[in-house]
Design a binder for these strands. Structure first.
Lengths: 237, 237
DNA sequence: ATAACCAATATGTAGGGCATAATGAGAGAA
DNA sequence: TTCTCTCATTATGCCCTACATATTGGTTAT
């Protein structure tokens, strides 16, 4: 019934106004904003509220403030600060599953871009990473190695937002594989079906510039996750 | 040189502490948090700073506050509030290109998930949407129709975060196609090469449950964007 | 026992005050 | 004139008090 008790406060409105002000005033990165006092007068609120609103924008990396220098506009990576709040403890399982699913989709979707950009240097770096991996505790490498390899892959695409996204989802993957019980089952099944693909296999396709082969391989590589997400979503509705 | 003048303030630290507090205290959605006064005492700061920190978390939808009721924890869609700040005016061209690229990758990557989930009801809805589209001003529909169709596609995947992501990037697409000059050139080229794919074509593949055909078609459908992004990135380095 | 009322409580907002650091102008020296 | 040092100015960072308001829960009255 009374779900909508969260009142829209002055700070909320002010935040909106300040955003509009910044957007409409055609400011570029590094340009200074008027002082807190100015906004307080302009919008007829106390300096406290202005500070609160600006504080929100600071967190989102829209602006940055320096003592006395005042506040300057920032052009930020829109995903960079996400990593602050997207933490396993604060997310519902549902959201985590969504994020895992998106990461898998992303990884498959960037294949054309990878093969458009890949250079010999990329191959060399990846080779070094793969040679350093240890499969000591089974056929699957640890989350750190996993992240290292895929981060390097993402770099080929030359997309900063994509890299930030990976930073966001890596903790989710780590959390999931160590906390969600039935998870291991899916990896086991894959192994038995002999469809398990490791980084060495992926690298081979990259070396051969074999886009189709890589695409199939990466789909298999991610299949345990996709299956897991699908199954869990069925369960929790 | 002196780029790093942005001092780490007490609010920044407090924000971190409060996040940790929330994460470590094992609170579920709807659970109340201690009062602002409590935190002020606990961390030896003024209530103002506590309010500022909490205000940031509110903006990120981690918490929600109600008069007197106090502050309660929220389990939010991690991407939902993004749409507030990811606005064309506040982004560098670079970030916009990154986002466009990611959206294309996403669209291609979710194809397996679409065909895993699709039902007759989905087909019917999509058919209604396509029949309502007007190609009056050329062979390409407007951004609204574009968004409508793809939103419905995304719904098939049953992924809330994905839908939010679409909300984030739609304004970017609209801004780009109306503000970035050489953009139209790429669409033109595609049309000439007779590779242009419209929603009707996509729908046909969905109807036929033809995953491979759809995959190829959606890649063609998005090719103008991908080419545009690639070309621009080459130009701006 | 139910209804009306009141006190306690926590957020929302205002405004004053002080510390500090960066800036720029003005004074003094070469 | 020009360079350097100093100081007033200014804007952010932080604290404190006070009050309005809305919700909650207990108390009183019927």
């Amino acid at each position: 019934m009374r779900e909508d008790l969260k009142t829209i406060t002055l700070v909320d409105q002010l935040e909106e106004k300040l955003l509009q002000y910044i957007q409409s005033s055609d400011l570029k990165e590094g340009d200074p904003l008027p002082s807190e006092f100015f906004f307080a007068e302009k919008y007829n609120v106390s300096r406290n509220l202005v500070r609160e609103s600006l504080s929100r924008l600071k967190m989102l990396d829209v602006i940055e403030s320096r003592r006395k220098r005042g506040i300057v506009v920032k052009e930020s990576n829109p995903m960079a600060n996400f990593v602050k709040v997207v933490k396993p403890n604060l997310l519902s399982e549902r959201s985590m599953l969504d994020l895992i699913e998106l990461r898998c989709a992303m990884e498959i979707g960037i294949v054309p871009m990878i093969f458009r950009n890949i250079t010999d240097e990329d191959i060399n770096d990846l080779e070094a990473i793969v040679n350093n991996e240890s499969y000591s505790n089974g056929y699957r490498v640890g989350p750190e190695s996993e992240a290292k390899f895929h981060t390097r892959i993402y770099k080929i695409v030359n997309n900063q937002v994509l890299l930030s996204f990976l930073n966001v989802v890596v903790p989710i993957f780590a959390y999931t594989s160590s906390n969600f019980s039935q998870y291991e089952k899916f990896t086991e099944e894959l192994k038995k079906a002999n469809k398990n693909v490791n980084h060495k296999d992926l690298l081979k396709h990259l070396k051969d510039r074999n886009e189709e082969g890589y695409k199939v391989a990466i789909e298999h590589h991610l299949l345990p996750y996709v299956n897991y997400v699908h199954a869990r979503k069925q369960t929790i509705g």
